Simulated assay, not measured.
Amino acid sequence: MDIVSLAAIILAIVSVIGGSILKGSGVTALLSGAAFMIVVLGTISAVCLHTPGATLKRAMAIAKWVFMPPKSNPHQAIEQIVEWSNTARRQGLLALEASVDAQPDDFIKKGLQMLVDGAEPETLRATLEVEISAKEHHDLAAAKVFESAGIYSPTLGIIGAVMGLMAVMQNLADPSKLGAGIAAAFVATIYGIGFANLFLLPMANKLKAIIHARSRDQEMLVEGLVSIARGENPRNIEARLSGYLH
């Protein structure tokens, strides 16, 4: 669990509600079913319209990474690669076959299996780099779903505000309704801008950072496997891979 992300969400909610109370508006001023429907449902419909189904499904799958990102331990990964290198140097590549099935990650399992099967270093690199690039592209497209939602949301908020003002204009003959009507009209703007800048856009950027870090870890693994395939010294491999830690 990413405690920082959870704390940030709570702080964002507290800042808006607390600010409304300190400004004298109160909590009830922020509640509007019509504004919620226009902004939230409108944003969801816009995102669904422009996003392919597979990308939308992937976006929902990786949303949890904001709070529970994939485990990443590059120091441990380097130690594992060096251990494989020592084993291959002493007993040959076939000695690594026992390690293939023990890998929980499909990408690592695939790379290690290719190494055991005696794939040429450049073939190994090319094959795995294609998979890294394709997966990164797909995941970044999924992260951009939240970025797109953050772009649509403020616009829908403006639409909600205009619609609210239209309702106010219809009641100009009754001055008692004008103040409450105008206040309600701007709630949609708060929803649109608030959802975009406090939740959607930060989520998109957080997911992009996680995806890039994951690709970096996979590139490090590829470099290590290729070095083992070339028969390089384990110490040289460790020294090269340490550069990924900076």
Score class of each variant (00 low, 15 high):
residue 146 F to K: 01
residue 123 T to V: 15
residue 135 K to R: 15
residue 116 V to P: 02
residue 140 L to S: 10
residue 130 V to T: 14
residue 161 A to V: 11
residue 157 G to M: 04
residue 151 I to S: 12
residue 162 V to Q: 06
residue 132 I to T: 03
residue 156 L to Q: 07
residue 155 T to H: 12
residue 158 I to C: 02
residue 151 I to W: 00
residue 107 F to R: 06
residue 134 A to T: 09
residue 135 K to M: 07
residue 161 A to Q: 06
residue 151 I to F: 03
residue 116 V to S: 06
residue 113 Q to R: 15
residue 131 E to H: 04
residue 141 A to C: 02
residue 109 K to P: 00
residue 158 I to S: 04
residue 143 A to Y: 03
residue 109 K to I: 05
residue 105 D to A: 06
residue 140 L to I: 10
residue 158 I to D: 05
residue 129 E to S: 06
residue 153 S to T: 09
residue 147 E to G: 12
residue 104 P to A: 04
residue 111 G to H: 08
residue 110 K to L: 14
residue 132 I to E: 01
residue 131 E to T: 12
residue 113 Q to T: 13
residue 123 T to M: 14
residue 133 S to A: 14
residue 150 G to E: 00
residue 142 A to C: 04
residue 123 T to G: 08
residue 134 A to K: 10
residue 118 G to V: 07
residue 124 L to E: 10
residue 123 T to W: 05
residue 120 E to T: 04
residue 107 F to K: 02
residue 159 I to A: 14
residue 162 V to H: 05
residue 137 H to M: 07
residue 115 L to F: 06
residue 154 P to F: 01
residue 140 L to P: 04
residue 126 A to S: 12
residue 155 T to N: 11
residue 151 I to Y: 09
residue 114 M to T: 02
residue 108 I to N: 11
residue 129 E to Y: 12
residue 121 P to K: 04
residue 139 D to G: 04
residue 125 R to H: 13
residue 119 A to W: 08
residue 106 D to M: 00
residue 121 P to F: 05
residue 130 V to L: 14
residue 122 E to V: 07
residue 128 L to I: 11
residue 110 K to F: 03
residue 132 I to L: 05
residue 128 L to A: 07
residue 114 M to Y: 06
residue 139 D to N: 09
residue 149 A to R: 01
residue 143 A to C: 02
residue 148 S to P: 01
residue 137 H to F: 04
residue 127 T to V: 08
residue 136 E to L: 09
residue 118 G to D: 12
residue 137 H to I: 03
residue 124 L to S: 05
residue 125 R to K: 14
residue 126 A to D: 15
residue 124 L to M: 11
residue 109 K to L: 01
residue 118 G to Q: 05
residue 154 P to N: 03
residue 127 T to D: 13
residue 154 P to W: 04
residue 123 T to R: 12
residue 159 I to S: 03
residue 153 S to P: 08
residue 160 G to N: 10
residue 150 G to R: 02
residue 120 E to D: 15
residue 105 D to V: 02
residue 145 V to K: 01
residue 161 A to I: 02
residue 147 E to L: 10
residue 141 A to F: 02
residue 116 V to C: 13
